[in-house]
């Protein structure tokens, strides 16, 4: 159903650090769920428009007007780590 490599790839994409046992359990569970979900493939949906919203609205826009900002302190209040006026994050290594 879903391979171990796929599970590892998806865990990386999802930024989830899973250990070996977790990856294996995830593979089993996702396989079971996907097997069930695969029943959808049996339905012929050729030419059927997708529904992305239950109530089909269009052209919802707002006026280009300003609303009050958060104060700097409010903006940073929940920061797990901050440096002065900034949020701080550990060193960035590209993947």
């Amino acid at each position: 159903m879903i391979s171990r490599q796929d599970v590892e790839h998806v865990a990386r994409l999802s930024r989830l650090a899973l250990n070996d046992a977790e990856l294996e359990r995830m593979r089993e569970q996702l396989s079971g769920i996907l097997a069930y979900i695969d029943k959808l493939r049996a339905l012929d949906t050729a030419g059927v428009e997708p529904t992305s919203h239950a109530v089909p609205l269009v052209n919802v826009m707002r006026d280009d007007a300003n609303r009050p900002c958060l104060s700097q302190d409010e903006a940073l209040a929940n920061a797990p780590d901050r440096s002065g006026e900034f949020f701080r994050v550990p060193r960035i290594i590209e993947d």
Binding site: R67, A75, G84, E85
Partner: peptide, 9 residues
């Protein structure tokens, strides 16, 4: 503007 002073939720 000063950092993080021009933001909202």
């Amino acid at each position: 503007a000063p950092p993080n002073s021009q933001t909202c939720p």
